[in-house]
């Protein structure tokens, strides 16, 4: 399960504020539920998320177990230069996923 939906406007004008929206397919298992045998189901959540725009940090977040499955993240940035937006997140299994979106900025 490495499905992600990312929505970013690809062509921007300098100074424009734009929204970055993403939906990540992830179970976000809270670690507080038990299976049918009474065993605790191990916690498995995305615990860290960061987003950079041309290597400049836009957002860094620590996520907690109360967030539902398939989390939806939305935040804003201001268009400066043509370049790439890189989103990286890590889950409790240590899986790191990186997604990249190229944006074109005109004057």
């Amino acid at each position: 399960m490495a499905r992600t939906l990312i929505n970013v406007k690809k062509t921007l004008t300098r100074g424009e504020a734009f929204e970055i929206r993403l939906l990540i397919a992830h179970p976000m298992e809270s670690g507080q539920r038990r299976d049918s045998n009474g065993q605790v189901i191990a916690r498995d959540i995305i615990n860290r998320f960061s987003c950079t725009y041309n290597d400049m940090l836009v957002l860094e977040a620590t996520l907690f177990p109360a967030i539902s499955a398939n989390p939806y993240l939305s935040f804003w940035a201001v268009a400066t230069e043509t370049g790439s937006i890189v989103m990286t997140w890590t889950d409790d299994h240590g899986t790191v996923q990186t997604e990249r979106v190229e944006v074109t900025v005109s004057a």
């Binding site: 499905r3 929206r21 398939n70």
Partner: peptide, 12 residues
């Protein structure tokens, strides 16, 4: 459609 999690399945 960008907020509807069902679209993760649509993509699949």
């Amino acid at each position: 459609d960008t907020a509807n999690p069902a679209f993760l399945w649509v993509e699949q």
